[in-house]
Design a protein around this nucleic acid. Structure first.
Length: 203
DNA sequence: GCCACCGGTGGC
DNA sequence: GCCACCGGTGGC
């Protein structure tokens, strides 16, 4: 199941199932209870490292001695967010849609406005802000980023012609700040259809 | 007819 | 060569 967010009359579907951040000390994954909390952590992860102690705010008993909350295995599709993505302004939604496996792009980011409009790019966004000043008080474009996360499984995307820097194969998560997981379930990307779907020949 | 999704491409 | 942007369209 995907997370459903009712916005006005419309329903918006988010591909992300779970939000996870790695402790900078013990390298264990900690689940983040809400998208809002995750966005808050993500925005400042460079300045403020995430630690198991941080998770005590919502889970008083947690510490580096506890096992990782999640195993990094194939039951989820893992993707790593870029740091410094600003928190989404109140009344807006930042939505991530994972694309089907084997395509040319991994995911699309879009924003849903307070008036329930779906914006696909900075161009559309700044036009919207100009045309709806009353809905955009105290909002400016620096609070938005369309930067999508990167899949940890690079083969999820169709192979690019001769990628030169291909050394990330060892441990992509090693230097990672944080990750999000999306489930390979039937409502999103069908498991069976994606696992061994191979393009006959690549140019 | 609408809209979510994907691919093509222009501009950097 | 990369990727932000958006046009086209298939599936509902």
């Amino acid at each position: 199941m995907e997370q459903e967010q009712a916005i006005g009359a419309k329903r918006v579907w988010e591909s992300v199932k779970l939000y996870t951040v790695k402790c900078a000390k013990c390298s264990k994954w900690r689940l983040i209870p809400t998208k809002e909390k995750y966005e808050e952590i993500r925005e400042r992860i460079v300045e403020r490292s995430f630690l198991c102690d941080t998770a005590r705010a919502w889970r008083p008993s947690v510490s580096c001695n506890e096992e990782s909350d999640v195993k990094q295995d194939d039951s989820f599709l893992w993707a790593m967010d870029k740091p410094r993505i600003p928190q989404t302004p109140p009344g807006w939604q930042r939505i991530l849609r994972i694309r089907a496996e084997g395509g040319t792009k991994f995911a699309d980011v879009y924003y849903v406005t307070p008036s329930n409009k779906r914006l696909r790019s900075m161009v559309e966004l700044s036009r919207y802000i100009n045309e709806h000043p009353h809905l955009c008080e105290g909002v400016n474009i620096s609070q938005f980023s369309f930067q999508p996360p990167v899949p940890l499984d690079e083969k999820y995307i169709a192979k690019r012609a001769r990628s030169t820097t291909h050394d990330t194969s060892s441990t992509p998560a090693a230097g990672a700040y944080h990750a999000l997981q999306t489930q390979n379930d039937s409502s999103g990307v069908p498991e069976s259809a994606t696992t061994e779907a191979k393009a006959p020949a690549q140019s």
